[in-house]
Design a protein around this nucleic acid. Structure first.
Lengths: 190, 190, 190, 190
DNA sequence: CATGAATGAGTGTTCATTCAT
DNA sequence: AATGAATGAACACTCATTCAT
C-alpha cells in the first residue's frame, strides 16, 4: 500500500466509523486498525483527530460541489435547470449515502470547527446564490431575501435526502421524485 | 436548594453546556460543579450521562409540543391556522434559543438514542400529520406523499429557525416573516 | 488508608522513583501502582506530573529549612555557630539521603519550573544572607560580594554532601568532618 | 553539506536544544529538523539518542580539558599557577556558556550513563589531583583528604561559573574576580 | 550515505461511575 | 438524599527507531 493509499484508507475508514458510531465514540486507534495502518500513521498524515474530521468535511463538500457543477448546464429555461440540479444533487446523495449521512450529522455539530463549516458552506452557497439572483431578475423566482432563500434551499435539500436515503425505493418512484421537486420549486417560485 | 431544585439546576446547566460545548466535551463533573451540586448527586437523579441527555431531549420536545398545541386553534381557515402555527412555532424557538439550538445539534446526532429520537419525532409529527391530511382532504394542500411532506415541513422549520436565531432582528421585520411563511406554505399548497 | 495517607504515599513513592530513575523515566502509572493507589488518584491530588514534582521540591526545601532553623542557635561566637550549622546541615543530608539526592539532581534540571527553584532558593538564602552580613559586620568574615559568597556556600554544601553520601563512613571520621568544615570556613573567613 | 558537517550540525543543535529544553523534552526529530537533516540521518551517525548525549558529554569534557591544559604552565609558584588555572577555567566557561550550562544540567542527571560521567570526571580530576598533591608536598596546601578536596574544588568551580554566567558583567569586575579566586584558594591553602 | 514515511509501545491525563461516610 | 474522594479503563497523541527507496 502506497503513501497515498494509506492516507485515503484512513479517510475512508474515518468516514465510515464517524457516521456509524459518531466522532467521539470512534477512537483513533480503531480507525487506524480498521484502515490497516499503525496508530502513528494516522498522526503522520493528520496532526490531530480534529484535523482529520475537518479535512474529511472539506474534501467531501468539495467533492459534492465538483460533482454538481460538472453535471449541470444552464440552457436558459430556469425551471428545467433547477429540476436538473435537484435531480443531480439528490442522485449524488443517493450514490454517496455515507457522505450524505456525514453532512446530516456533522453540519450542525460542534465536532467541526465553525470556521471550516462556514468555509464549506460559502463555496456551495456562492454558486446557489448566483442562480437564485438570476431567477429573481428574470421574474421567475419570488423576491424573498436571498439569505433566507438559501437557508430554505439547504433545509429542503437536507430534508429530501434524509427521506430518500431512509426510503431508497421511493427515489425510483416518479411521484415521489416529482413531489419533492415540486415542494422545492414552489417554495421559491414567483 | 431542594431535591427538585437540584434536579432542575442539573438539567438547566446540562442544556447550556451541551449546547455550548457539545455532549462529549462536557463532563458530568463540570455540570455538577456549575449547577452547584456534588458529582454524586447527578447520578442520584440520572442513572447515567446518556440518561440525562435523553431526558433533556424528551422533556424539551414535550415542552415544545405543549407550547405549540396550547396556543393554536383551528378555526377552519387552514391557511390562517398554518400561519398562526408557523408564527407560534418560530416564536417559541426565538424565546428558547438554547433549546432550539439543542435540537439543531442533537436531532441528527448519535448522542441521543435513536429510539428516543423517534419517540419524540412521532409525538409532534402525529399532530402535524393530522393537519396535513385535513388540508389535503379540503383540497387546500397538494396531494404529495404524506411522509415526504412531513420531512419537508420539518426541514423548513429547522432552516427558518436556524436563520432567525442567527439573525434575530430579522424576525421583527415583516418582510422576512412573510417570506419565510410564504416559502413554507407555497411548498405545500395545492 | 486515609486521604492524607494516599497523598503522602504518592509523594513518598514519587521521591524514591524520581531519584532512582529520573523524572522522565518514571511514569505516573508506576508511581500510582507502587504507592498502592489508582492512576486517577494521583491526578486527583496533583493536577499534573509537573505539579507533583514542583510540590515535592518545595515541600522538601521547606522541610530542610525548618530542620536547620529549629536546631541552630546564635550564641554570639560566629565560628562556633557556623560549625554547628554546617554539622546540622550535613547531618540532615545524611539522614535524608533520598531528599539530598533529589536536590542534587533537580536543582539544575529543567524538570522543575525555574520560578519554583527561585522561590525555594530565596527562602534558604535569605537566612544565610543574614548570617553572612553579621559576620562581615563583626569583621570575622571577608568582605566579598554577598551574592558570590552565597553561591559559593551553596556549592560547598552540595559538594560536601555529595561526597559524604557517596562515602557515608567518612562522616564518622573526625578528620573528614573537620576538613570539610575547614574548607567551608576558610573560604569565607576574613 | 558534507557528512562531517551534518554530524557537527547534529551535535551543535543537540547541545542547544538539550540545554534549553532538557534531554527528554527534545525529540530526535526536532534535532534533525533544526539541524537541517532527515530523521534517519541522526541515526546513521549515532546509534541512539542516548549515544548522542553521551558523545556530546564526553567530547565537551575533552574540549574543556584540552583548553585548560594547553593554556596553563607550571612555573613553580603554585599560587600563581592556581590563579592562572582558575582564570583560564572560568574564562572557558564564559566563552562557552552553552557547554557550561550543559555540564551544570547533566553532571548530576540520570540522562547520562553513570560510567560515562565517571570516565569524564577522572580525566579532569586526575590532572587536578596531581596539582593538589604537589601543593601538599610543598606545604602550600592543607593536608585534607584528597578526594574531599577534589569534590570541593569541583563544587566551587560549578558555583563560580553558575554565578558568573548568570551575571556576566561581574567577571569584568576585578573585585569579583579576586574574591572568587580568594574563596577557592583559601579553602585549600595550608 | 541519506531520506522520511511508517511503526507501535508507551505516556500523561480524563472522566463516568461507585460507594463509604 | 447528598457528598466528593477514589477508581481504572480508555483516550489522543508522541517519539525513538527502522527500512525501503
Amino acid at each position: 500500500m502506497s503513501r497515498i493509499d494509506k492516507k485515503q484508507a484512513i479517510l475512508d475508514t474515518a468516514l465510515t466509523l464517524f457516521v456509524s458510531q459518531g466522532f467521539y465514540a470512534t477512537s483513533t486507534a480503531s480507525i487506524a486498525k480498521k484502515a490497516g495502518v499503525a496508530t502513528g500513521t494516522l498522526f503522520h498524515h493528520f496532526p490531530s483527530k480534529e484535523a482529520l474530521i475537518n479535512h474529511l468535511y472539506l474534501s467531501i463538500k468539495q467533492e459534492f460541489a465538483d460533482a454538481i457543477q460538472s453535471k449541470i448546464s444552464q440552457k436558459g429555461e430556469l425551471k428545467t435547470d433547477a429540476q436538473n440540479l435537484w435531480q443531480v444533487a439528490i442522485n449524488w446523495a443517493m450514490e454517496n449515502p455515507l457522505k450524505q449521512e456525514f453532512f446530516q450529522q456533522y453540519s450542525m455539530s460542534p465536532s467541526i470547527a465553525s470556521e471550516v463549516r462556514l468555509q464549506a458552506m460559502n463555496s456551495i452557497l456562492g454558486f446557489m446564490g448566483q442562480l437564485i439572483k438570476q431567477g429573481q431578475k428574470a421574474g421567475v423566482l419570488a423576491d424573498y431575501p436571498l439569505s433566507l432563500m438559501l437557508e430554505s434551499c439547504h433545509g429542503q435539500y437536507l430534508a429530501a435526502t434524509r427521506y430518500f436515503i431512509d426510503n431508497p425505493t421511493s427515489w425510483k418512484d416518479e411521484e415521489y421524485k416529482r413531489s419533492s421537486f415540486a415542494m422545492f420549486w414552489n417554495a421559491m417560485k414567483a
